[in-house]
Amino acid sequence: MIRFENVGMRYGMGPEVLRDVSFHLAPASFHFLTGPSGAGKTSLLKLMFLANRPSRGLITMFGQDIATLPRAELPPLRRRIGVVFQEFRLLDHLTTYENVALPLKIQGKREGEYRADVEELLAWVGLGDRMNAKPPTLSGGEKQRAAIARAVVAQPEVLLADEPTGNVDPEMGQRLLRLFVELNRLGTSVLIATHDRALVESAGAPELVLRDGRLTIRG
């Protein structure tokens, strides 16, 4: 599904932040992405979300070489990927419910088809009583949970999550992990970037470990 072969990446004329990175994510796989701050985790996720292109090497996603893919063909690929950004990227003029339902609305679904599912998901992440609130009134943890719900609501083929439990307590972190595991059971490939060792150890999934821009696989 996603394959990196000897990928390098640099910003402008600076040094490489990723060096000779190679790995393969199979359909319905579950991995953690770990490593110290500044190791290149966010840069790797941006490549996988097609926000950046590599400086060298080969990246294939869904059978396509992204280096040669015309820009007009990137949005359809991105819609197959759910992403939880550290900065959340919620739309301030929409309610929590509307933010979470947005991927389904973009797919052309009618509200009657998805309203019950969105409400159930919001209740699961502890936002059942905040459905009509707008992002400026939400706490950091609430924004994070809304962003997670939005990323998973359409059951994407791939889920990329950047520190998804960074602003929640351990109990909610484990609850969110169960949500990711269930999504994976339904067929989504999941990659979670995290510093939370308790989260990693409780799941027992393989790790992609980044240090100084180089990747090794553990487990």
Rank of each mutant, 00 (worst) to 15 (best):
N52S: 14
G108C: 10
P76D: 13
F49Q: 12
G82D: 07
I148M: 10
G173I: 02
N132E: 05
E120C: 11
Y97V: 02
A51P: 04
L160F: 03
T96F: 01
P170K: 01
A154S: 15
E142G: 08
L159D: 02
G141M: 04
Y97C: 00
L102S: 14
F88C: 03
V125K: 08
L50N: 06
L50S: 11
L69C: 12
A116G: 12
W124K: 14
G35D: 03
V168L: 09
P75M: 01
V153A: 08
G141C: 09
R145I: 02
Q174R: 14
L127V: 04
L160E: 05
P136I: 00
I106D: 07
A51M: 10
G112C: 03
P156V: 00
F85V: 00
R56K: 09
F49P: 00
L33S: 05
M61Q: 14
E113M: 04
V118S: 13
A149W: 07
R130G: 02
E111A: 04
T137M: 12
D92P: 10
M61Y: 05
F32K: 00
T96L: 08
E157S: 10
A28D: 13
V125L: 06
L50A: 08
T165Y: 08
R145M: 13
E120W: 07
G35Q: 02
L127T: 08
H93W: 12
K105L: 08
L121C: 07
V100P: 11
V84Q: 06
I81T: 10
G166C: 04
A72Q: 10
T42F: 00
